[in-house]
Amino acid sequence: MLLSILQIIGLQLVLPAAFIFSLWRIKSENKLDWIIQLLFTVIYIMWIFLSGPWDWLGYYVRYVWVILLIPAVFFSWKKTRSLPLRTTLNGSQKITRGIHIVLILVFGLYNVSVFSSYTTQEEAIDLMFPLQDGTYYVGQGGSSTQMNYHHAHEPQQYALDIAKLNSFGSRASGIYPKDLDQFAIYGDTLYSPCTGEAMEVRDGLPDLTPPEMNPEQPEGNYAALACEDTDAIVYIAHMQENSIMIQEGDTIQKGQPIGTVGNSGNTTEPHLHIHAEEEGVGIPIKFDDQFLTRNDLVRTN
């Protein structure tokens, strides 16, 4: 977990600051190298803006980099606008240019993967959003593994992991607290996303202290719902111990309370996991006809 925290700090704070500062203070001898460095910086900032897990540092922090990028572009252009388009380069300058071009290609492909995750050609089922008391953040979601690690696993390929943001735009008080109550979503009521029948229900597993996990019972406390007008089964997982309000075989109504968000099962922190399967294959979910991906917000209050 410490490694993940360091990666987030490095990729989302240190590197953007370094790249924007480097563009701002650029000492290029020609316009072409300025254009190449500008393209790389913009493409990197776009990638981290769209695909970074911003619920850790604060959802609105990502806009800081966009705001800082604008004057960096302006002042760097003022320094280079009178330069020739091209000049003869020495060995180290050629290496620097080559590195920037390679990075443009790498992060350009990353951005292609990000944009590809926003849509799917498969038919989706439309559900009611199962949370109703705050601003909710999609941490995993979309149709590519870069935006949704679940996409690598066929039964859960369109699964969503959802957190809740506090007033600071973060999912918790602190970077990674052990107190479950410090997570904004912990204990929030879950509502049935459809009318149907409860096919499977499990309760009684303990809520774990982060980063403890239970890989032997990955769903934790969960409910599997057979929704009307579809052959898919909707799974809602990691629910709070002894919070489930329905039993196997119950008929349930859309919007009916069914339990609360917990931290049971194979999970590193409290969140809602929801996915739909049809004959063991994951199918897309929409809420109010919206296909959600990482960094989307759902405001319910």
Rank of each mutant, 00 (worst) to 15 (best):
L3G: 10
L3I: 08
S4G: 12
Q7N: 11
G10R: 03
P16L: 10
A18F: 11
I26W: 03
I36P: 14
F40S: 07
I43R: 04
M46L: 15
I48G: 01
F49D: 05
L50G: 01
P53V: 11
L57N: 13
L57D: 09
V66R: 03
L68K: 08
F74E: 07
R81G: 02
S82P: 05
T87E: 11
T87F: 11
L89P: 04
L89C: 06
I95S: 14
L103C: 09
F115I: 03
S117A: 15
T120H: 08
E123W: 00
D126V: 11
D126P: 09
L131C: 03
L131G: 00
G142D: 10
Q146D: 11
Y149D: 07
L160V: 12
L160H: 12
I162D: 02
I185C: 02
Y191D: 04
Y191R: 00
G196F: 08
L205F: 13
L205R: 08
L208H: 04
A226P: 07
D229T: 06
D229V: 01
A232F: 01
Q240E: 11
Q240S: 01
M245L: 14
I246N: 02
E248G: 07
T251W: 09
T251G: 04
I258L: 12
S264N: 06
T267G: 09
P270Y: 09
G280E: 10
G280V: 10
R299N: 13
N301A: 10
